[in-house]
Every structure is written in C-alpha cells, then in structure tokens.
C-alpha cells in the first residue's frame, strides 16, 4: 500500500465522480453537501450535510463516498453528518444551475429560502423548456423532497422546480 499524502485536494476531485442519485446530472460537490474533508491523524474524515432531514438519497451518497475512497486506496476513513450550518440552495454554483436547467429542472433562485414562503408571493419561476416566465405552481411538493411541481402556461409542459431553502 502506497503511503498517501495528507493533501485533501485530490479527494475533492475524486468525490466529483459521485452523481446525485436522484439528479444524476450534477455531482455531490456541486450539490453542496460535502462540507469539509480533513485528516485526523491517519484517518480521513468526510463531513456531509443533508439537503432535507428525510432525504433518502443521503444514505446512498454516504455509501458512494465510501466506495470512491476505497477505490482510490484510502483505507481508514469515516463519513460524519452535521446539520449546521444547514444546507441551502445558495451553495449551488452557476454551472450546476445551468446543468439542472438543461436537464429540465428549473434551478433554485438565488437568495435563500424565499422569505415569502409563508404567505408571501412566490417569485416567478422560468420554464426550463421554453424560457417563459408565465408559469404556475401546482404543488409545493414534487417528485423528491427538494423539488416543487410547476406548469408552464405558455408551452403547457409540467416541470420540476428545485425549491429554495
């Protein structure tokens, strides 16, 4: 077994191999769930935070992280979950947002957790198919915990919106 350097940079690269199990066009680094990677003596610790408390994909991501670390020859490691600071869609970069749009999911708006979520007006969401701003929310809860269901009034296509939290 080759001695590994205690550099964490390559590990950030390796973890990009792992797609989000439910939205495979973005990887888990782009999703923003990896909070830190560090060495505790000879043990590697990957710190993750869940998108939603009950997101069933978290366990799968954890298993995938372990697999990737093993594949690259890291033998002593652990995955730790933290809840604070809590995950926000603001941690997704422009590139990830564009990938979502091309995939047919309206990306989250910038600016955390629509302050208007409680009774306020929801911001206008742009249709990822035709680009129209004339869209309508059908349900705040969509196909996964992180998405809401919308329909475009112009092209009539239904679509998922990655909701802001």
């Amino acid at each position: 077994m080759v001695t590994q350097t205690k550099d964490t940079q390559p590990i950030w690269e390796y973890l990009k191999e792992i797609p989000d199990p439910e939205i495979p066009v973005i990887n888990i680094i782009e999703l923003g769930v990896i909070r830190d990677i560090k060495w505790n003596d000879d043990e590697l610790e990957v710190i993750i935070t869940p998108t939603y408390s009950g997101c069933p994909a978290m366990q799968e991501m954890e298993d995938d992280i372990v697999k990737v670390l093993n594949k690259h020859g890291y033998t002593k490691h652990k995955v730790t979950t933290v809840l604070s600071p809590s995950w926000t869609t603001d941690w997704m970069n422009e590139e990830a947002r564009e990938k979502l749009r091309v995939y047919g999911i309206a990306p989250p708006m910038k600016g955390t957790a629509d302050k208007g979520v409680l009774f306020g007006k929801m911001k206008a969401v742009t249709c990822p198919h035709c680009g129209s701003g004339d869209t309508e929310m059908k349900s705040q809860f969509g196909s996964t915990a992180c998405k809401a269901l919308y329909q475009c009034n112009s092209c009539k296509e239904p679509f998922d919106y990655f909701k802001c939290i």
């Binding site: 939603y52 408390s53 009950g54 349900s139 196909s143």
Partner: peptide, 20 residues
Amino acid sequence: LEEDIAMTNIALDLVGQSRT
C-alpha cells in the same frame, strides 16, 4: 396525486427529523 405526494413528502421530513 399532488396531495398524495405532498403528504408523503411531509411525512419524509418528519420521520427524518425524528431520526435525528
């Protein structure tokens, strides 16, 4: 269908919170 999905989404959040 939308409400079936909404209620199970909320259930998922709550069970997740309970796990913590």
